[in-house]
């Protein structure tokens, strides 16, 4: 099997005698340059060029439809106003909590589904299809369905009633923020009085986390399934001969093998989460007292409804920085700091 996959003949450049350093460099790096060059060029423009442009807009006076890149005075005034606004503070709180809860739920659910489907000897394809199907639906429409489901008097609460569960949660209508620490922070942290919003967990967000996990757990499952399929059969066999229990097998054997998959899922779902927009707009909107407002909505409203292009740009730069704070150390540890 192994040898079949190898090329049978010797193809490729034969060593030459005299080589300039440039041609040696190209020979060693030609393929890399050929492949990565175009990628770096377009991403340089579309990502870093546009980020630079956005950063420039964020410190400009641009409000209204006419482009105005004149620097603001003071330069960072858009940022300071925005960061002080209760709404944007609530947005940062919401997206942080949402991302943590959503990643946890989607990954755990995806992992459980993957193990169940992987080991199911019956209707594997059917189940895989069922759990992946929500991912194929447009967020704009699933958001509406989930809003119906989480309408307290007509939605899922009717089913809870039928099941004899007495709780009647307010779901997306619940304005409560539990575990508010802003008061404590203000007394402890110097300058804590800049906090203009309740720092806790808005209960309305939980419904949105459920909806988003429903939609994307199937994708996490798909990646885990690909990973599980890649685990050499010998490992499973060896573990089985050792008399390992199922739980031990998944914890000690499968999990380490799935680490790269987990990284893939966390990064992909993380970026979906931080940019979430469609689903929230259709489902809960900004929520009672901005309980479910997210930076994506803020950027859109500031840019296209209020036509405050500088504020919209500043908000997205803050979003990027947030991502940076969370993800750069992680990427660094995973890809740079560790062994390569």
């Amino acid at each position: 099997m192994t040898t079949n996959a190898l090329p049978q003949s010797r193809i490729g450049p034969q060593p030459k005698r005299a080589r300039t350093s440039l041609s040696r460099f190209l020979e060693r790096n030609g393929f890399r340059i050929l492949v990565l060059g175009p990628t770096l060029l377009v991403l340089g423009i579309f990502v870093y060029g546009f980020i630079a442009y956005t950063a420039r807009v964020s410190v400009s006076q641009w409000q209204g439809l006419a482009v105005n890149l004149e620097p603001n005075d003071p330069l960072m005034s858009t940022y300071s106003e925005m960061l002080a606004s209760p709404r944007f503070q609530a947005d940062i709180r919401n997206i942080t909590i949402f991302t943590v809860l959503f990643l946890t739920l989607a990954v755990v659910l995806g992992f459980v589904l993957a193990i169940l489907v992987h080991n199911s000897l019956r209707s594997r394809g059917l189940f895989r299809g069922v759990f992946l199907f929500p991912y194929s639906l447009s967020f704009i429409v699933t958001g509406v369905v989930w809003r119906w489901i989480f309408t307290p008097s007509t939605g899922v609460n009717l089913i809870l009633d039928r099941l004899g569960i007495d709780a009647r949660p307010g779901w997306i209508t619940d304005p409560t923020v539990v575990g508010d620490v802003s008061g404590a922070l203000e007394t402890v942290v110097p300058g804590g009085d800049v906090i203009n919003t309740q720092l806790g967990i808005p209960l309305a967000l939980i419904a949105v986390v459920i909806a988003a996990s429903w939609q994307l757990a199937g994708f996490a499952m798909a990646i885990f399934l690909a990973g599980l399929a890649g685990i050499p059969e010998e490992l499973a066999e060896a573990a089985s001969l050792d008399g390992a229990k199922t739980r031990q097998y998944y914890w000690h054997v499968a999990m380490p093998q799935l680490r790269p998959m987990l990284v893939t899922i966390l990064v992909i779902l993380g970026h979906v989460s931080l940019k979430s927009f469609d689903l929230v707009v259709a489902m809960s909107g900004r929520g009672p007292g901005f309980a479910t407002d997210v930076p994506g909505i803020y950027v859109f409203e500031q840019t296209f409804r209020s036509l405050s292009f500088n504020t919209g740009a500043a908000a997205s730069i803050v979003m990027l920085l947030l991502v940076g704070i969370i993800i750069v150390p992680y990427l660094y540890r995973t890809y740079v700091g560790g062994k390569s």
Binding site: Q63, P86, R87, G289, E301, R305, S306, L307
Partner: peptide, 15 residues
């Protein structure tokens, strides 16, 4: 547009 947004945000908080 800018005032409309401010008013709308203020209403959401006031509610």
């Amino acid at each position: 547009p800018a005032f409309q947004t401010v008013m709308s945000e203020a209403v959401t908080i006031f509610a």
